[in-house]
Amino acid sequence: MNYLDVRPARFLSRPNRFIAHMEQDGRIVTAHIKNTGRCAELLLPGAKAYLEYSPNPARRTPCDLVAVEKERPGLPPLLVNIDSAAPNAVAAEWLSSGGLGALEGLRPEYALGGSRFDFYAEQRGRPLLVEVKGCTLEREGAALFPDAPTLRGLRHVRELTALAAQGWRCCVLFVLPMKGARRFAPNRAVQPAFADALQAAANAGVEVLARDCLVAPASLHIDAAVPVEL
C-alpha cells in the first residue's frame, strides 16, 4: 500500500487518543492519530515522524500521523507504521497475491454469528477465515501483541478456535509494520488471557502467523515470516 503526500515532522505531544501536536517547518501542526493504542514507546517528544496530508479541505485536521522512527541505543532507528488501517490493507494485498495459496471468493469484513472477521475465502472447497492484528510494540527484537488488553481480539481468537474444531481453516495473522523483529510472542504481561487463548487456538489447529513488512515513510508491504513463540 502507498500513501500520497507524506512529509516529515517531529512529535511533540498527544493530548488525547485521537490527535497529536507536531512540529513541522517551525510551526505547530495538529494531526489525527490513526491508532487508538498506547504506542507509548513510539510517541515520545522529539521523535521523528511522518504525516500524510489530505486533499480534503473540510477535515478538522489537515493530516494523519502514519509512521514514527523509534530510537534504539547502538542501532539505527526503527521505522514503524502506526496506521491501524494499514495491516488489513497490506494483508488484503498479500492474500490476493497468494500469501496463503490460491483462494476463491476473497472478501473482507465477513459477518458470522455475532462477529465480523477480517477476511473470508474458500480454498479447495474449504472455508477460510483470517483475522488480522497489527503489532507495533517491539522490545529487544521481539514483537509483542497486544500493547493494551483487547477484549475484541480475545473474543475473535476463541471463536476461531471453535470454528477450527468444525473443520474451518482459521488463521490469526499478526502483521508487524516494521522490519527486523527476530520473533513474535503474545504479550502475556499485558493480557495473560489472550496469550492462553492463542496457545489454545494453536493447539486446536488455528494457524498463528507473523509477517514483518518493508516500511518506508510513504509505503508498506508484507515481506517475511517471523518465528512465532507461544
Score class of each variant (00 low, 15 high):
T161I: 07
K34E: 12
L100Y: 13
Q166N: 06
A181N: 07
A189E: 15
F11T: 10
C135V: 02
Y53P: 04
Q166Y: 03
R183K: 07
H156N: 12
R139I: 13
D212C: 01
M178W: 12
P62T: 11
R38F: 14
C170W: 05
S97V: 02
G134A: 02
R155A: 15
R188D: 08
T136W: 07
G37T: 11
L12M: 15
A102Y: 01
D64A: 04
K133S: 07
R60W: 11
G180Q: 00
E138S: 13
E71S: 13
S13V: 14
D25R: 07
C170N: 06
A89M: 12
P55K: 08
D118Y: 00
C135K: 11
E109M: 08
Q166W: 11
L220Q: 00
T161Q: 04
E131T: 06
S84W: 06
N187M: 09
C171R: 00
A165S: 14
V208R: 06
N16Q: 08
A200Y: 05
A89V: 15
S84E: 14
E69I: 01
A49P: 00
L220F: 04
G46W: 07
Q191M: 09
Q199E: 13
A202Y: 00
V172F: 01
V215K: 03
P186Y: 01
R182I: 04
V132P: 04
E41F: 10
P87T: 13
H21N: 13
L43G: 03
Q199G: 13
N88I: 11
E23Y: 10
G74R: 10
N203T: 15
S97E: 15
M22Y: 03
A58V: 14
G134Q: 00
R17D: 15
G46V: 14
L44W: 11
L79K: 00
F18E: 12
V226F: 08
C63N: 07
S54W: 10
R152M: 13
R124T: 07
G26F: 05
V208F: 08
V175G: 01
A49S: 03
T136K: 09
N35Q: 09
D83S: 10
N16P: 11
L42R: 09
S54N: 08
S84L: 01
D196L: 08
Q166K: 12
A67L: 03
L230V: 10
S97G: 13
L173I: 09
G101H: 10
M1V: 04
L106N: 03
R182Q: 14
G134N: 06
E93K: 12
M178Q: 15
D83H: 06
G125K: 00
E71R: 14
L214A: 13
V68G: 04
A86I: 14
S219H: 03
P8T: 06
R60C: 09
L65W: 09
L137C: 08
R139K: 14
E122R: 08
L65P: 11
P227S: 04
S96V: 02
F117G: 01
G113T: 05
A216W: 01
N35I: 01
P62I: 12
L12N: 14
A58L: 15
G26L: 07
A20F: 01
T61R: 12
L214H: 11
A162R: 10
H32E: 15
G37V: 05
E71P: 00
G141H: 01
G37Y: 06
L4Y: 02
D83T: 13
L43M: 10
E23N: 02
V172R: 06
G114F: 03
